[in-house]
Design a protein around this nucleic acid. Structure first.
Lengths: 252, 252
DNA sequence: GTGTTTATCGTCAAGCAGACGACTATGATC
DNA sequence: GATCATAGTCGTCTGCTTGACGATAAACAC
């Protein structure tokens, strides 16, 4: 059959972002408040339309920069300053997911170190880091006792998928370092695992595991006492991306 | 800003399928010959446009049924007859990936047991199972000495990503059983792993591992000698989907 | 100094994986 | 029918990794 533009329906394509970070021992995601219908006033994941000449990854990186100021880690640069990790997560295309029109959203997952206050196009009151637990509980009450409205669209599902991806990916990759600043201690890395998994890990076994995995951590020579207690060695992320054997998540 | 349909560019959305099976000890993928430009006459992955009222998974299942006659495994039915496994793989949206227009393709991965001859809308000469090695080698020569044209569009990349997904997923899930008929032996399952990973596994250690993992295999009571040698017990896939600890892929 | 906190090293037992020997039950071949 | 080849199944042994946990070290607060 010949090429016929009317043979397929037109779609809008967006990118939505699950931007995760660890703040105060809790896994948090970036949420923005919607300024227009539908779901006006509700919290949602940041995102936007893919432009006509833009690749999906480009669009996601652009949205990430617009919302957080973060630049994306370039895989070509092995040791690198405070860029975020960005990867495609999944695509959501239920015909009814947006009441206005047919929108297919290519969700991306970004992992970032703890950041200064978020900005949503310069308007800080419309963007915040919220613990993922809080964003995912449906119809409950937040820590301040206020009722919590669920995220707009299918964003609760997207967020849940992104969190699950992050949880499983730090098992077998060195991605947990993306939550850390350029230089970090073993204890700080352990607290990342603890926050993402929501479990307590044995500091001694964790130390043995991460320092014993070749290519995971590279000592910088410096030490720090910023966590209190005995000074701890500082490390940078090594070149290894896959952990073999993996870091084991404790049974529930 | 108000809703403005002209604020976003229209996209065509397609689903492309990486359908994998194991035939004659080789990991094979379904390829169809393109009947129209661009890439007319070249091999490509099966796929098609998502319809206006269709979910992405629905569209993928429909395409799979059209190309192979396979129905999709319903996760609600634990033990089930010869359905295929189908999952979303990734989305490809380079602005230049289709010279005609802006097309975003949501690739899906399907795993199927060995099938009778493929059909592409009834035309068998335009569909075939080909070893993935053969489909992925660029500009080389096939087993028959004929020059091999690379797959159309970015389908080589999609296929490579799908194969990699399958290779890693059978490590930590029971998905390898999706390549087997309803009832199968430990040896048949081992040959699936060997074909997908392209390695040889020790039959004794493999047997210990799979029979020792709770919920992986359920004996049916029957035996078979269809592989020759001593009769082997027949098993069905058990309810477990995640293998813990995982099946270890030997080092290269 | 004493107590608290965090980091780091070491020990021990249990479990799992890889290497591989041994035996079993079929069909094929002489 | 004896022999052989093939595939399946059960065991053994050794080394590595993990989880539990004791012990020591180096900072800060009082």
């Amino acid at each position: 059959m010949p090429y016929d533009p009317s043979a397929f329906p037109p779609f809008a394509v967006t990118v939505d972002l699950v931007v995760l970070t660890v703040r105060r021992h809790a896994l948090c995601a970036l949420a923005v408040r919607r300024g227009e219908p539908p779901f006006q006033g509700r919290w949602a994941l940041p995102g936007g339309f893919v432009r006509a000449d833009e690749d999906l990854a480009q669009a996601a990186a652009r949205e990430l920069a617009e919302e957080t100021g973060l630049r994306v880690h370039d895989p070509a640069v092995p040791v690198q300053d405070n860029g975020a990790h960005l990867e495609q997560l999944a695509t959501y295309g239920d015909p009814k997911r947006d009441p206005r029109m047919r929108v297919v959203s290519v969700a991306h997952l970004a992992l970032a170190p703890d950041l200064p206050a978020p900005r949503a196009g310069g308007d800080a009151s419309n963007a915040r880091w919220a613990p993922v637990e809080e964003l995912l509980q449906q119809g409950g009450y937040g820590r301040d006792g206020e009722p919590v409205a669920p995220l707009a669209f299918d964003h609760a599902q997207i967020l849940a998928d992104g969190v699950e991806r992050a949880r499983s990916k730090i098992e077998y990759s060195s991605l947990a370092t993306a939550f850390c600043p350029t230089e970090f201690t073993v204890g700080e890395l352990r607290r990342v695992y603890e926050a993402v998994w929501g479990v307590a890990l044995d500091p001694r076994n964790f130390h043995r595991k991460v320092t014993g995995t070749p290519g995971f951590l590279v000592p910088t020579g410096g030490t720090t006492t910023r966590q209190g207690g005995r000074p701890a060695q500082l490390f940078r992320a090594g070149g290894a991306t896959l952990l073999n054997p993996p870091m084991l998540r404790p049974e529930v």
